[in-house]
């Protein structure tokens, strides 16, 4: 119910916000979806990934390359991004889920950096260090000819984000979500029940990766540009800050944190420039010390107290 209300309010935003704020909100929502997908791994599955940006990047490159060489349809690009995310999740996840705890963290961090190197060195395909530029503007069912592009693209992004959230929420509530939580809490027991623990984890990584890749497609379509830094530790850490700030065991928390952080970064970018990263680091440290369950935890505590 609350989700439908939130979607309705968000859908009405083009009538309230100007083009610039709308574009900012579009980016915030895309990052919100990706942060929520990371929360599924970190909080729900207990798999602390430090390489989640790789999925963003894989989705973004897949969408951008599709746009340049195959189709200008936003839907086709999204499909390509999700497919690429699934394949990337299966290939890297197949190894990653055999590790646990810190090894998972290290492995995912390494995969993210290797992905950066791969994107940098495959210059003929990806544009190398300079990034993939000249991505054509996506077509959106022809609606873009009738209305301002920012507005149409916002609605498109909102639809993708809503669908992504629906997938994440359904998975969390369904049998797979219970199995994922089960492997987080007690591997031995899950194996004794007949669950393949690596299989359950791979499913979690694949769902999170596919959803994150969808968010990556939105980033590529919105900016019409992808760079190797999109895959790197910096973005992974930003996503993690969103998750920590919003709450690991929540979907809405990280999403709200993402919208807030993206807006804050934009507002302060003139004054702070690269010093934004200091703010990010400070937020990171403060969250770990003061908000172990994030803002969602504070919310729940207040709800219990009332």
């Amino acid at each position: 119910m609350r989700a439908i209300l939130a979607a309705a309010v968000l859908a009405a935003m083009p009538f309230v916000l100007g083009a610039y704020q709308l574009s900012l909100l579009t980016g915030g929502l895309a990052y919100g979806l990706m942060a929520a997908s990371l929360a599924l791994l970190v909080g729900h599955a207990g798999l602390p990934s430090l390489g989640h940006a790789a999925f963003l990047g894989v989705g973004a490159y897949a969408a951008g390359l599709t746009a340049k060489h195959l189709s200008e349809s936003a839907v086709v690009q999204l499909g390509a991004a999700v497919l690429a995310g699934v394949v990337f999740a299966l290939v890297t996840g197949w190894f990653a889920v055999r590790t646990r705890g810190f090894f998972f963290l290290m492995f995912t961090l390494a995969i993210g950096e290797i992905a950066v190197q791969a994107a940098t060195r495959s210059g003929r395909v990806t544009g190398g260090d300079n990034g993939l530029s000249g991505i054509p503007v996506s077509t959106l069912f022809g609606l873009e000819t009738a209305m301002p592009y920012v507005v149409v693209f916002y609605w498109w992004a909102l639809a993708v984000v809503a669908a992504g959230f629906a997938v994440l929420a359904a998975v969390r509530r369904g049998p797979l979500g219970a199995a994922i939580a089960g492997t987080r809490e007690n591997e031995a027991r899950m194996a004794a029940f007949g669950y393949s623990v690596p299989g359950v984890r791979l499913a979690a990584v694949t769902v999170a990766g596919a959803v994150c890749a969808a968010g990556g497609a939105l980033v590529a379509q919105k900016d019409t540009f992808v760079a190797p830094t999109h895959l790197g530790v910096g973005v992974s850490v930003l996503l993690l800050v969103m998750v920590l700030l919003g709450g690991r065991d929540s979907l809405a928390g990280p999403a709200l944190a993402a919208v807030g952080l993206i807006a804050l970064r934009d507002v302060t970018s003139g004054a702070l420039g690269d010093k934004w990263l200091l703010v990010e680091g400070a937020l990171f440290v403060l969250c770990v010390y003061l908000l172990p369950e994030g803002l969602a935890g504070l919310w729940r505590k207040r709800a219990r107290a009332a």
Partner: peptide, 28 residues
């Protein structure tokens, strides 16, 4: 020290946060 008993992940994340502060300070 204050994070003892709060799980290994939180400790690792704290070192990551401090690392960002340290390196961004130097770059500044």
């Amino acid at each position: 020290l204050p994070l003892r008993g709060r799980g290994h992940l939180d400790q690792a994340l704290l070192t990551l946060g401090l690392a960002i502060l340290l390196s961004e300070f130097l770059l500044g």
